[in-house]
Nucleic acid binder design. Structure first.
Lengths: 253, 253
DNA sequence: GAGTGGTCTAGACCACTAT
DNA sequence: TAGTGGTCTAGACCACTCT
């Protein structure tokens, strides 16, 4: 960044400074992980007040292009989606084989971990609606936080009618080989298909904390409904760190 | 919001103010479209400087919970996803029938419009890679901006090898009934399937402008590859307003 | 004109990181 | 200790909306 740059009237100063920095990032002049000019340097370069350069840096952070590290500087953020979720994850070959679904798209050298909490609750209206049971029906809820190599990736909350799950391994923290879907088939609920509804939004503060999300990184939400030929048997609400995920879907015409 | 509220030490004032406002929104005390307390009111309520209450309001805007309207106030943002993209969109029944794919999931009373620009370019590396052609190969690019009821929804850039598309309706703005996919089949490229890669991120300033995105609304990006039994024939890069979309995918085990 | 949010200044003190 | 970003103040002027 050259010394003493001029700003044109008409467009706010903080946006012009953000524009210049963004251009430096896009052009590759500032690469992944590089430190941006410090606030002090930007104040000298552009001849503006500190709050003005801070506003410019905030713009870049909220665009997901930069992250601030207290005491160290503001750095170009590097995306590294190291996981890919594909349709294959939900194939019977996967969970029928005794592998956890979770492992389906995980490279061998990754360390996968999860915390889990199983509770019994009354179904919220939207869950009951999707399960096609009366509002307030008892459900077993399996809440998990999945991490890979210590990096939190995904929150999930699987809801199953208590009538189906209670007294089975599905209501235990460890569902055994093949997981919930393998158990459902054993219990006489052969799965016919899944429907996933995908959306994106900014995280709540809680989600940002649990998933260790930097500023400017949205979450992808997935509502997956697993169903047999005559009824839905599970609703899984999933929230994923969009920075680390590429979802893959295959469609046949 | 009661008058004169106290702030506790330890947590930054602007975050505590944001917390209170967020709680009011989540509880429903402030509903969709309601005006939040003005900056002046918040200054009096919490006894802080203006930049502090502004910081609190920015937090909510970047979370996608509120939108500021210059001269009017800051309002609770209301989500209204009025479109749903499902697997059915890509069924042969859809585009084989002469309906534009675009219409597949559009309710009858919507006004659909699009701008389109068709160009011939050298393929960028990632596009060439996905089309399995040498880098720099000539491609026909169909860039569109889709809107519904005047609201911009989606940007797309469909890339096809020039070898396939040149001299056909695919290189014209209007591809005719059933669109590009119907033409491809007529030209001897029967489609065997599609793969979609879905990610989410914050928009670039250009995307935010074109899609009329408020602060705090991410985009969903989709890279769709259409292929015949022996080669990919189209790569479509799609950027959608995540506020207006629910993607739906069906999966068979 | 009164009220709203948008930009900007010139300071202050604090917390964190590096050396 | 020097340099970095994080929070906060008490003003200023501007642009927009509504009545």
């Amino acid at each position: 960044m050259a010394r003493s740059r001029s700003l044109k009237p008409g467009r706010p100063a903080y946006q012009q400074i953000a524009d210049e920095l963004r251009a430096s990032i896009r052009s590759g002049e500032l690469g992944d992980g590089d430190r941006l000019p410090s606030e002090t340097e930007l104040i000298e370069t552009f001849g503006v007040a500190r709050m003005t350069v801070r506003a410019a840096l905030q713009v870049l952070q909220h665009e997901g292009l930069a992250v601030a590290e207290h005491g160290r500087g503001v750095f170009v953020r590097h995306r590294r989606p190291f996981r890919r979720r594909s349709v294959q994850r939900l194939s019977r070959a996967q969970w029928g084989s005794g592998r956890a679904m979770w492992e389906a798209d995980t490279a061998e050298d990754r360390t996968v971990s999860a915390t889990i909490e199983v509770t019994r609750e009354r179904a919220a209206d939207d869950i009951a609606d999707r399960l096609r049971v009366p509002p307030g029906t008892d459900v077993v809820v399996r809440r998990r936080l999945h991490s890979v190599d210590g990096q939190p990736l995904q929150l999930s909350a699987a809801h199953l009618p208590a009538e189906i799950a209670v007294g089975t391994p599905i209501a235990e923290p460890d569902t055994g080989p093949g997981g919930t879907y393998a158990r459902l088939e054993e219990l006489g609920y052969p799965l016919e298909g899944f429907v996933e509804e995908v959306q994106a939004r900014m995280p709540s503060p809680d989600e940002a904390r649990l998933l260790a999300l930097p500023t400017g990184v949205p979450v992808i939400t997935i509502v997956r409904v697993a169903h047999t030929s005559d009824r839905p048997v599970e609703v899984n609400e999933i929230v994923v760190n969009s920075d680390l995920y590429v979802l893959e879907y295959q469609i046949r015409p």
